[in-house]
Nucleic acid binder design. Structure first.
Ligand SMILES: [Mn+2]
Ligand SMILES: [Mn+2]
Ligand SMILES: [Mn+2]
Ligand SMILES: [Mn+2]
Lengths: 217, 217
DNA sequence: ATAAAAATTTAGGTAAGTCTAAATTTTTAG
DNA sequence: CTAAAAATTTAGACTTACCTAAATTTTTAT
């Protein structure tokens, strides 16, 4: 079996791989896992011994097929638990990530399968992230960032790139909820902030920093 | 914070204390935790340092108030998760203990509180064990063992003393379900096995071994 | 009361996961 | 194309939770 720590490394390697082309560096892992590079190296040797990653000294790492399968399984569990916490227990979407970080490591395939059924086979987690299938496939999404949308276009809020409590609470205060339809007003050329208009006609001012962390379709 | 291992020791000390008068011995703990006495001694020193147990070398241990509070909190979580797994996810009562052993260590008071509400503030887990209150009180129950009931008495099945999968599956096969009413037939003086008659009039033969692990009222 | 038996603790060691400091390799810049 | 900078690995240690073997204390039985 694999330890919590090993599972977290696999998940982190997967997450960094999505953002970057090429292999994942020791320092990148050290930063995300909040450990030191030397500790990362130790773990990489262990994961390579277990054939969960491809690793050549000084050259960075990449998940093997088995490593990716495990990473997706853990991400699936994480996102299913987040749906449970929000939809069934009534947590806010800004409060569920840390709890799901623990729940995702509960080892029981039957638990995952029954939870999935109980939740009605959800496709997305509360932050709009797709839930990997039981078969181990990550559904593709084709969202743009709100910061790349043109003036006058009508779009729908589908997800967030930033998951911090502070960011999600900010969206709550602006009444920017996932699924809501908005129309883009003028983009301010000075700071690239933008005015959007909600279905209800309510105007909302969105900074560029916020706009580039919002996914729309 | 306390590690999973520390939490499991506290729970185990509590459980052994319920069965025995007096302090809990190192060997008793070693047996239940499936470790060696030397390892138990190490942990007892640590728990004593944290003032979670009263410990005098060679004299056995007893939980402090804080230690008991923590033990009850973990038992509460364990039993609430078991209710969730059976009532909401449809697991059999014989399949939930091991998963709850992991879930009980998820650290979030708000999670426990919301789960309790979601489940409708249950008072008993799927095995008939009382769920400690949020205030940290273990509800008292006054059940007798089926093996102590007299011939002709009518009783209701309220709980089990043995929680193994094998035992619970045996009860399933006998159609001995928690809550069902039964009347005691003759007790066989040779092996103390007993015939009980269910509400439906179905006769069921129960060995003494089974009868002394069934709680009734 | 005392010797044998049982229970418990101590001593010394291991594996996982972390650290700091030093050594090594790769990358970047002049 | 080399020398400095950056990245990475190695060396040596620490903590937690466990182990075996040896020492110690308590209990039990003659
Ligand atoms: Mn999350
Ligand atoms: Mn995690
Ligand atoms: Mn249980
Ligand atoms: Mn446990």
């Amino acid at each position: 079996m694999h330890s919590f720590t090993e599972e977290n490394y696999l998940k982190t390697i997967y997450a960094i791989s999505l953002r970057q082309a090429g292999d994942v560096s020791t320092n990148a892992l050290a930063e995300v896992t909040a450990t030191k590079a030397a500790s990362v190296t130790d773990m990489l040797r262990k994961l390579a011994d277990k054939e969960l990653i491809h690793y050549k000294k000084y050259q960075g790492v990449r998940l093997t097929e088995e490593g990716e399968r495990l990473a997706l399984q853990i991400i699936r569990r994480h996102r299913l638990w987040e749906v449970f916490l929000v939809d069934k227990l009534g947590f806010g979407w800004d409060a569920v990530h840390d709890i799901a970080e623990e729940l995702e490591h509960i080892r029981s395939d039957e638990l995952t399968a029954r939870l999935d059924t109980f939740l009605g086979h959800p496709q997305f987690d509360p932050h709009g992230d797709p839930i990997p299938t039981q078969a181990g496939l990550m559904p593709e999404t084709e969202y743009r960032k709100l910061s790349e949308v043109n003036e006058g276009e009508a779009v729908r809020l589908m997800g967030v790139l930033e998951h911090s409590t502070a960011f999600l609470q900010h969206l709550d205060r602006c009444q920017l909820t996932l699924g809501c339809a908005v129309t883009l007003g003028e983009i301010n050329p000075f700071d690239r902030s933008v005015r959007v208009v909600s279905e209800a006609g309510l105007p909302i001012f969105v900074s560029h920093e916020v706009a580039r962390n919002l996914l729309v379709e």
